[in-house]
Amino acid sequence: MIIRLIFALIGLGISILGEEFLSQLVFDREGDQGNLVWVNEKPITLPQAEIGSMYLFGKTFDSIDQLERDSLTQVLINEELLIQRGETLKIPNRDIGVRKSLVSASIRDITSKFDAVPVSERTLRSFFSEHQSIFEKPQRMALDVIVLAKQADLRRAKSLIAAGRDLSEIAKILRLNFAMPRGLQTLPIIYRQLGTKIASFAEVLETRQISPPIRGSGGVYFLQLTATEDALLPSFDDVRDIVKQEYRRRGRELALREQIDLLASEADIKTMIMSASHK
């Protein structure tokens, strides 16, 4: 009976103190980082003052004089009042610019935690050996490509090829422009320029070999492989900075994905579109 009475009294006490008691606890915790001033129960923290001081005076908050401190305090109060006004007007939800800015702030906040962790040389080296293909300099090839639109040119080109002439000579004789740049290029770029059907012939050519005639858009194509450069894996020391950048980039992406997944798992998400689901 007495125990029940005690519990009932505790319950009554909590309900009477209620929000004020809880908010006091919250404010005390916020106060741990040090506050300068309170505006409508919202603290302006010392770290905020520190940033403001550096921005306005280019000095730390401790090193500014009383006059500067007072004017900074007034500026921060004005800013806080304007921010609170913005919150009342629901500007963060309604203004697309503010919304995007907040999303970017979240990304910075999450990824900066990953960036703050120092990376050891050993970690970088093991990342390099596990992801060598990223740092590999890809194979490149140089091609001469001509397109023949006229039947007479095609006949002439065929006979010149049969006589052992290179495509560069044939282009000169027939006054043709090359269909793509002649320098060394990677396979994906060659595929993009020539299309899958024609580019696939380039892959099987030997150096100096000329392809059979290939019918494509704009006429008949001939390709000649003039030079190749094998794929090359640089040493770790040569690409150390790139390895570090890539490690950081992937780490940031992973940290962000993990945090979003965590937020999603804790959130109440309902999708109204039948086909949709999160992730």
Binding site: I83, E87, P92, R99, L102, V103, A105, S106, I107, D109, I110, Q259, I260, L263, A264, A267
Partner: peptide
């Protein structure tokens, strides 16, 4: 979710 994260942490 990121917007709500920013609001919760007072990134404003």
């Amino acid at each position: 979710l990121l917007f709500q994260y920013a609001i919760d942490r007072d990134l404003l």
